[in-house]
Amino acid sequence: MAEPMKIRATMQGDVADVKVLMNHPMETGLRKDAKTGQMVPAHHINTVTAKINGNTVLEGNMAGGVSKNPYLGFKVKGAKSGDTVEVSWVDNKGDKRTDTAKIA
């Protein structure tokens, strides 16, 4: 079971400033385990989707080149305080996670 994301969203003028921290190892598949000498299999988030009040605002694709525990910051015009931000990800093993937060 994937650990929850942390989402912080604040209004900066008429633009919502959204910051997300996902919990994921983001293994590239190119790294050797120092102890066993075996290659660590690729395990990374493939897609990310962000919605505000149910409307998609951001769709992303990523791979092992994004740092462990991925951080995403984006800005949405027209959103307002109290709106719900929903962020979801799906990884290459089919594991997924969705979390929500209110815009402060």
Partner: peptide, 25 residues
């Protein structure tokens, strides 16, 4: 110069600005 250069891509709609902030390897 990464073995696989493409790190991430994002598409914006519904008021999302042309802005993205992240951390890469």
């Amino acid at each position: 110069k990464n073995a696989s250069p493409l790190v991430a891509d994002f598409s914006f709609q519904g008021g999302a600005q042309g802005f993205i902030s992240t951390r890469i390897k």
